[in-house]
Design a protein around this nucleic acid. Structure first.
Length: 495
RNA sequence: GCACGGAUGUCAGAGCGGCUAUGAGCGGGAUUGCAAAUCCUGAGACCUGAGUUCAAAUCUCAGUCCGUGCUCCA
C-alpha cells in the first residue's frame, strides 16, 4: 500500500514520490516571530510533526527544514510599540517557540534557518529575476512582475488572472507603492526611516516576505524538493509568489513536487482572531489543560479539515487520552518478566481469547498504517488506537494465566509504543508513565480530615448504615473530594 | 463575483462503489449496598432531485445551504 497524499496544486490525492529513493526533502513555512505562538501554530506544526514522524516511521530519511521569519513589518511595528530592539524581540519569541513546541512533543526539524541570514542569497535571486526580465526596480523597491509569467497564476488557488485584475477595482492606487500592477509583489523594499536595513544594488532596504522561502529552501535542497507545507492561508499569495520566483529563477517546473496545506482552527465555531477576543496562545491553554490532551485533541482530526476548538472537543480528548494512557500503564504494570515468553500465532477465527486478541491487534495495526498512508489520516489512526486499547484492556482483565499475561503485556506495550507513541507522539516515556503522580499540596492540607471521615464512613458501611455512609460521601463531595471504592478499600482525590 | 472545501445518527467526526468507523450522549446488562470507573450489549445516519450500476454516504449532473480564501495571517 503506497503512501498517498493530497497535493494542493494537483487538487487530488496522488502517490507520494521522492526525487531520490528513500529520501525526503521537506520545507514548512515557519512563524513570523513577532509574538508568542497561538493555537493555530500548534495545529500546523503538529500536522507536519505527524507527517514527519510517519515518513520516518515508513523508512524515509527525512530532511525537515522550517524557517523563522525574523524581519518583517509586524516585527518592526511590535518592537517600536514596546520600545525594544527588534533583535531581542525575535530572540525571545524564537525561544518561546521552542518551549511551546517541545511541550506539545513536536519533534525538532533538522534545521531552523532565519531569513536575516539569507539576505545575500535573496539579493542574488532578485538580481537574477531582474536580469531575466521577471522583476523591475522602481523608487520604493524591486517587484516581481506577475504578467511576465501569467501561466503560473492561480496554480494553487485556481484564481484567474483576468478575474483578479477586473475584480480588484481601484486597489492599486491604495497600496501606496510604485508597483506597476497590483498583482506584482515586493522582492526588495527600499529603506524607510528608522527601519533596519541591509545594503543592496538598489540601495539600503530589506527583503520582501515571499523571497525568503525560495532562498532558504534552495540553500538546503537545491532547485527542486519533495514537500512544501504550510497553513491553508499561505496558498495565496505567499506560495503562489514562491512558485513565480522559484520557477522563474531556477527554470525548473515544478520546484516543489508536493504542496501540503493544513486546515485552520476555529474557536466555538468562529474564526480565531484578536478582534473577536478568542485568540488563544499555546501557553495560555497549557495553563489549563495538559499538553498531551491538547495534542490528542488536535491530531484527532484530519490535518486538512478545519477544527472547531471547544469545551466538548477538549473533554472528549481528555477522556480518550486518559484511556490510552491508563491502558499503557496497565500494560506496563502487567509485564512481570524482563523478556517475554512466546505467544501463540494470531488467528482471528480462534476461540482462544489470547490468540484471537493478538489477531485483532494485528488487524488494528494494519488499519492504523493504512490510515496514515491515506493522506495522513490521523483521525482514523486514533480510532484504531482506541480500538486496540479496548482490545488490550479486555484481554488483560480476562483471567489469563501469569505467563500468557506477561507475554501479552509485552506485546501490548510494544503495540502502543509503536502506534500511540512513536507515530502519534502521545505517550510519555515508560519511566514517566510509571511515576506516581506528585502530591497536590492542597491534598495534604485536608488529608487527615478526609481520612477521619473515610474511617467514619467505613464504620457506617460495616454496620450497613448506608444513609450515613452516603451522607459522609456528600460531605466529602462538598469539600471537593471524590471517593472511589475499590476492592482494596476507598481511594480519594480532588475533583 | 471568482476560487477552494464541506453537507453523515442527539453531538463531534471517519469512511468515499458491496464489508461494525471511533468517541461522547441515550437504553439494557455484568460489577457495586448505592455511586464512580471498567467491561459486555442495544437503538439510531448518510442535504435535495435526477442519472450511471446487479449494487451508491461513496461515482456523474443539477440544485440548496454552510465554511474559507481573493489584504498581513499557520
Amino acid at each position: 500500500m503506497p503512501l498517498r497524499l493530497y497535493d494542493t496544486l494537483r487538487k487530488d490525492k496522488v502517490d507520494f514520490t521522492t526525487m531520490e529513493p528513500g529520501k525526503v526533502s521537506m520545507y514548512v513555512c515557519g512563524v513570523t516571530v513577532y509574538d508568542r505562538c497561538h493555537l493555530g501554530h500548534a495545529r500546523c506544526y503538529l500536522a507536519f510533526d505527524l507527517i514527519h514522524r510517519w515518513l520516518e516511521f515508513s523508512g524515509f530519511d527525512v530532511h525537515y527544514v522550517q524557517n523563522f521569519t525574523d524581519i518583517d513589518d509586524k516585527i518592526i511595528h511590535r518592537a517600536n510599540e514596546i520600545g525594544g530592539d527588534w533583535r531581542k524581540l525575535v530572540d525571545e519569541n524564537i525561544a518561546a517557540y521552542y518551549e511551546d513546541m517541545d511541550a506539545l512533543n513536536i519533534l525538532r526539524a533538522d534545521d531552523y534557518p532565519r531569513c536575516t541570514d539569507y539576505v545575500d542569497d535573496m539579493i542574488r535571486i532578485t538580481q537574477d529575476l531582474i536580469d531575466k526580465g521577471n522583476a523591475y526596480q522602481v523608487d520604493d523597491g524591486v517587484y516581481f512582475h506577475v504578467e511576465s509569467a501569467p501561466e503560473k497564476y492561480g496554480l494553487l488557488t485556481g484564481q484567474k488572472i483576468e478575474a483578479v485584475r477586473s475584480g480588484a477595482g481601484g486597489r492599486v492606487e491604495g497600496t501606496g507603492t510604485s508597483k506597476r500592477d497590483h498583482k506584482d509583489f515586493a522582492l526588495w523594499k527600499a529603506a524607510k526611516p528608522g527601519e533596519p536595513t541591509w545594503d543592496s544594488p538598489w540601495g539600503p532596504g530589506r527583503p520582501g516576505w515571499h523571497i525568503e522561502c525560495t532562498a532558504m529552501s534552495m540553500d538546503y535542497f537545491g532547485e527542486q524538493f519533495d514537500i512544501h507545507g504550510g497553513g491553508h492561508d499561505l496558498r495565496f499569495p505567499h506560495h503562489e509568489a514562491e512558485i513565480f520566483q522559484g520557477e522563474c529563477h531556477t527554470g525548473c517546473s515544478p520546484v516543489v513536487h508536493h504542496w501540503l496545506h493544513n486546515g485552520f482552527v476555529n474557536i466555538d465555531g468562529e474564526k480565531m482572531s484578536k478582534s473577536l477576543g478568542n485568540f488563544w496562545t499555546i501557553r495560555d491553554i497549557l495553563q489549563q489543560i495538559d499538553a498531551m490532551v491538547l495534542r490528542f485533541a488536535l491530531i484527532n482530526a484530519h490535518y486538512r479539515s478545519p477544527i472547531d476548538m471547544n469545551e466538548t472537543l477538549l473533554k472528549d480528548a481528555e477522556r480518550n487520552y486518559n484511556r490510552v494512557l491508563e491502558c499503557y500503564i496497565d500494560s506496563l504494570k502487567a509485564m512481570t518478566s524482563k523478556s517475554p515468553v512466546s505467544l501463540p500465532n494470531p488467528d482471528i477465527t480462534s476461540f482462544q481469547p489470547l490468540t484471537k486478541s493478538l489477531a485483532m491487534l494485528e488487524k488494528m495495526g494494519e488499519g492504523f498504517a493504512k490510515a496514515m498512508d491515506d493522506d495522513f489520516n490521523s483521525r482514523e489512526a486514533v480510532a484504531k488506537v482506541l480500538g486496540g486499547v479496548r482490545e488490550i484492556s479486555k484481554t488483560l482483565s480476562s483471567g489469563l494465566d501469569a505467563k500468557d499475561k506477561d507475554a501479552f503485556a509485552h506485546y501490548s506495550v510494544e503495540w502502543l509504543e509503536e502506534t500511540a507513541g512513536r507515530v502519534l507522539g502521545i505517550l510519555p516515556t515508560r519511566e514517566f508513565a510509571l511515576l506516581e503522580p506528585e502530591e497536590d499540596p492542597r491534598k495534604e492540607q485536608i488529608a487527615s480530615k478526609v481520612e477521619d471521615l473515610l474511617l467514619e464512613r467505613k464504620q457506617a458501611r460495616d454496620s450497613k448504615d448506608w444513609a450515613k455512609a452516603d451522607q459522609i460521601r456528600d460531605q466529602l463531595t462538598e469539600m471537593g473530594v471524590v471517593v472511589v471504592d475499590t476492592a482494596d478499600g476507598p481511594t480519594w482525590d480532588l475533583t
